[in-house]
Design a binder for these strands. Structure first.
Lengths: 192, 192
DNA sequence: CCCTTGCTAGAACCATCGTTATAGTAAAAC
DNA sequence: GTTTTACTATAACGATGGTTCTAGCAAGGG
C-alpha cells in the first residue's frame, strides 16, 4: 500500500478533482480524462473505485451533501437567536464562499439541469439536498411562526434558491447580503 | 418554395424543436439528430440555416429573449398599479406556465450551467436576459422606491431567480405564488 | 518469500455526435 | 421550360469520450 503520509489517497484526490471540475465546467462538459489528469490518477483506479462516471458523480454529490450539512449545523450553532438560527443558511453560504471563492455554485442546481431524468440515481441526491435543508428550516421556523412554520420555511428556501441562481448567473451584486435582507423582512411579518 | 399553408417553415420547426429539447433534456444532452427528428427536417437544412449547433442555440435563445420580453410587456400593460407593474414578472411566469405546462424552466439558467465559458457567443445572451429584465425592474421600481429603486429592483430579481431555481429543483409547492407573497412584503418596506 | 493491496502506464474498443458531402425532388419564379 | 428555391434522404468522416484490457510495479502482512 502506498501510504505516503503527505498525499491523500487516490480515491480522495478523485473526489476532489471531480468536485472542482464537475461544478465548475459542467458534468457532461468534463471528461473522465480531465478528472484523471487533475487528480493524477490512472483510469483503472477510477473504475475500480467507482464503477463508472456516474458512480463518481454519485459519490461526489453524497460527499457534498455531508459537507453542506456540516456547514449548516456549524452556522446554526454559532447563531444566537431564533431568527439568526433560521437565517443561518445564509451564513453557511458566506462561510463556504470564504473558503472556496472560485466556486460557481450550487452542485445540486447544476446537476438538476444536466441530469433531468428523475429515475437517474443522482436525481435522488439532488432531491435529498432540498429535503434535508427543508427539514432543518422547518424545525427552526417553528419557534418563530408556529402553525405557519411550513410557509415560512418554504419562503426562506425560495430566497435561498434565488441566491444560488443569482450566483450562477454571475450577478454583479452580492446575492447573499441581498437575500439576508429579504429574508429578514419575511421573517418579521411571520413573527408578528 | 414549399409554402404549404398548414406547416411552418423548416427553420421555424427547428427552432421549436430546439426550444423544447434543449431546455427539457439539456443542451449537451440533446443531439443534433434528436432536434432533426423532432422537427422533421433534414441535416443539410439545419446547417444551411444556422451554420452549426451553436448557431441554432444562439438563434433559439435570441427568440426566447424576444418572447419573454413580450410576455413581460404584456403583463406590465395588464397591471393597474405601480406595485402590480413591478410584480408583473410573476404574472408573466404564470402566463407562460399556463401555455406551456411541461416546461422545466428557465432556458437562460440552464444555459448558464451548461456553457460556463464567458467568452462563448451564447454567454452574452444569458447575460442579456438579466440585463433587460433588470432595466425594466429598475424603471418600475422608481415610482415605488425613489432613490432606493436599484436595491428594490435587485431584490425582486433575486426573488425571481429563486422562483426559477425552485422550479428547476422540482419544488412541490407553487413557487410563483410564494415568490409573489415575498415580493409584496419587500415592496412594502421600500414604499414606506 | 509469497501474496495481496493499491495503485500506474498505455493501448485498444466501441458508441456517439457534430459535421460534411453526394445526389435528388417538388414547387415557385421568370 | 428552364432555373431557383427550399428542401429531403443517406452515407460517410473525424473526433471525442466512456469503458475495458493487459501488463506491471511497490509496499506491507503473514
Amino acid at each position: 500500500m502506498k501510504t505516503q503520509p503527505g498525499t491523500p489517497s487516490a480515491r480522495q484526490r478523485l473526489l476532489d478533482a471531480a468536485d472542482e471540475l464537475f461544478y465548475l465546467n459542467g458534468i457532461t462538459n468534463t471528461g473522465v480524462d480531465d478528472v484523471l489528469a487533475r487528480a493524477g490518477v490512472s483510469v483503472a483506479t477510477l473504475y475500480a473505485q467507482f464503477g463508472n462516471k456516474d458512480g463518481l458523480l454519485s459519490a461526489s454529490l453524497s460527499r457534498r451533501l455531508e459537507i453542506w450539512q456540516e456547514y449548516w449545523d456549524e452556522a446554526i450553532r454559532s447563531a444566537e437567536s431564533d431568527q439568526e438560527r433560521l437565517l443561518a443558511i445564509f451564513d453557511a453560504l458566506e462561510l463556504y464562499r470564504g473558503r472556496r471563492p472560485d466556486a460557481r455554485w450550487c452542485a445540486f442546481l447544476s446537476t438538476a439541469v444536466e441530469i433531468p431524468d428523475a429515475k437517474h440515481a443522482v436525481a435522488a441526491l439532488t432531491r435529498a439536498d432540498t429535503t434535508l435543508l427543508n427539514q432543518r428550516l422547518l424545525t427552526l421556523a417553528e419557534p418563530l411562526a408556529g402553525a405557519e412554520a411550513e410557509r415560512l420555511a418554504a419562503a426562506v428556501l425560495l430566497i435561498y434558491n434565488g441566491t444560488l441562481a443569482s450566483f450562477l448567473r454571475g450577478s454583479p451584486e452580492d446575492p447573499i447580503a441581498q437575500a439576508r435582507e429579504i429574508a429578514v423582512l419575511t421573517v418579521r411579518t411571520f413573527a408578528e
